[in-house]
Design a protein around this nucleic acid. Sequence first.
RNA 1: GUGGACGUAGCUCAGCGGUAGAGCCCCGGGUUGUGAUCCCGGCCGUCGUGGGUUCGAUCCCCAUCGUCCACCCCA
Length: 437
Amino acid sequence: MSSIQTIQPVKGMNDVLPTEIGRWQFLEATARELLHAYGFDEMRVPVVEQTDLFKRAIGEYTDVVEKEMYSFEDKGGERLTLRPEATAGMVRAAISNGMLRGARHKLWCIGPMFRHEKPQKGRFRQFHQIDVEAIGFEGPDVDAELIALTAAFWRRLGISRVSLQLNSLGTVESRREYRARLTEYFRAHHESLDADSQRRLEGNPLRILDSKNPAMQSLIAGAPLLTDYLDEASRAHFEGLRALLDAMGIPYTVNPRLVRGLDYYSRTVFEWVTDALGAQDAVCSGGRYDGLIAQLGGEPTPAIGFAMGVERVVTLIEQVGSAPAAAQADVYLVAQGEAALRAALSLAESLRQHLPGRRIEFNLGGGNFKAQFRRADRSGAALALVLGEDELARGAVQLKPLREGAGSALEAPLATAASAVGHWFSQQGMSPSSTPR
RNA sequence: GUGGACGUAGCUCAGCGGUAGAGCCCCGGGUUGUGAUCCCGGCCGUCGUGGGUUCGAUCCCCAUCGUCCACCCCA
């Protein structure tokens, strides 16, 4: 420890270490494959946007916009914000690049999001989302396809402790009507509302329905149901979606109290929840935002999307242990003596050319044989290649198996060592242990 | 923003009003060219930081910073 003051990481912003990166890569590779198979194209958009974009898209009076955004003025005096979610930027990009005009797009992106919240389990200030958007489709077929995609994703990742909650918020107009009735109802019972809910009554009365306070449950149970205020078209849309999910055999629970925190949602909303992550139980959620594109100045276009919390899913993967084992070396080269070291380094290069899938570790930094073999063992390599002065004098290299039942050491001519190593691995029937995905 | 718990070695943790210990890791030796086991040795700490009480504080008190968990909110 030096006496120099160490620099702290930024609160709520985490490093992903080599010991955990395998789970991230497993998740990302699976997502990439699956999204490709479902016909989605990856797109990349900036992490920073004009502050107004988020105000207009997410809603001026949401928690995210009111108190969670990383906003700043840049040197040119522009008001900018680190994106707190991805949909706004994706939609902005579709508009900016003239991608609408009746066209249809299935898009996705992955990257960091930023919200200035107090960190806790499953909640960070920098976190990552996989964001998927289907633009230009009215549904409900596309709604069903998106949900099927998420269900397939859990299956591929080996995750089973998740369940699907579903609701319809109706159109903006029908929700406004419902909201008025709900406000009336709660206002009539104002004195039995807890402090949080009294505050919500002005801002977002639908959130009162989500209250975790047991004292509030009977009041909530008596509240009018959003479902009863759905307009005819939204009702038909919702029933259509349910029929499609039933036909695909995807189980769900209709949760009339599922409302979502962002203003832009309409009609279909859904959320995959888990009981395995503590208080932050949502791992993937989204919904339809038919009015958003027009509201941001684009051609009126229906759309639906969802966001998945990468850190939360990574935690689930960790719990079930479904990610492939951490990468290990295949071959470890041990060398001693100046001339032998030069020959061994060249041999490593030739192995890397001849066996491109294998992880070849050359012992860096010298050391006696004991130390080098200890490192070879800890590298996980199945095979050590030994090149000392004796071997060099014979123009040979020793192949020493390091694992049980892999035979005894043998020698191969240095000139043909690369193919001898390839031959040894195929005899062992070993596929490369380090397969980056 | 509110509340609670916790900060001792790189990691996991023990400890006690008399200025610190274990295991793991790392390094060396036992084996002058052979790992993983075993044995021996070594390295590593301003006990989060600042102040107070005390003859004396890692321990008690206060403040501060950090981490974790919950509320709120959300992925």
